[in-house]
């Protein structure tokens, strides 16, 4: 089956924009590098967050859990994405944390008194996120969630390589020998024991 539909320019820019939306993190590259070891220990302690308050951390964590949900396989929650987010927001200096906090406040302001995003059931959470999915705030959280799920564990997320294991990426092994996959196995004469 062929899907001849062209990925629209808008969709493409949308995803590229999500990355550029976080270009502020690029400025803070050295700071994020220094973050590495600290994040490890913070995560292991399951200790207090460095940057976020408990309530907002619960909300961001709930959003991340809808972006990469826990299904029959682990998701953002099990990968400890919130620890990556907490650290990254603490390190960068050009306003992402403010964007995130303002966005979260706006989101919670649509809810009845004292109710927060994290209190809603998953269906309601999805409805609410669907309504803001083209906003910069949502894109920031989406990008942070993907980063936290797949970046090296030393940044605080992707606990025990959960993200990499999910997609079959074994990049941390380093060196490889042929065959790499199903289609080159016949050429190289080796046996391929994957799918």
């Amino acid at each position: 089956m062929t899907n001849n539909k062209e990925l629209s320019r808008r969709d493409f820019l949308h995803s590229a924009g999500a990355i550029s939306g976080i270009s502020c993190l690029r400025i803070a590259a050295p700071a994020l590098v220094s973050l590495t070891q600290a994040a490890c220990s913070a995560k292991e302690q399951s200790a207090a967050f460095v940057t976020l308050g408990e309530a907002e951390a619960a909300d961001f964590s709930a959003i991340a859990a809808r972006i990469i949900p826990t299904t029959e396989t682990p998701g953002a929650t099990e990968a400890g994405v919130i620890y990556f987010i907490d650290r990254a927001f603490g390190e960068e200096e050009s306003g992402s944390l403010n964007v995130a906090r303002d966005g979260l406040d706006a989101l919670n302001a649509t809810l009845p008194d004292a109710t927060r995003f994290a209190d809603l059931d998953e269906t309601m959470q999805d409805v609410l996120l669907k309504s803001i999915e083209s906003d910069g705030f949502f894109n920031l959280l989406r990008t942070m969630t993907v980063f936290g799920f797949f970046a090296m564990s030393s940044y605080g997320g992707n606990k025990d390589h959960i993200g990499w294991d999910l997609i079959g990426f074994k990049g941390h092994h380093g060196a490889w020998e042929y065959p790499f996959g199903y289609y080159d196995a016949a050429v190289h004469g080796g046996s391929y024991d994957g799918e």
Binding site: S15, I67, T71, V146, G163
Partner: peptide, 26 residues
């Protein structure tokens, strides 16, 4: 690499978040 794949490599008919997004990446 995983982040590049998730951010740039998804087919146009796949939502950008949620269970289908996750399953498709995987």
């Amino acid at each position: 690499t995983p982040i590049f794949h998730a951010m740039m490599g998804m087919p146009p008919d796949v939502p950008s978040w949620g269970a289908k997004f996750k399953n498709e990446i995987a």
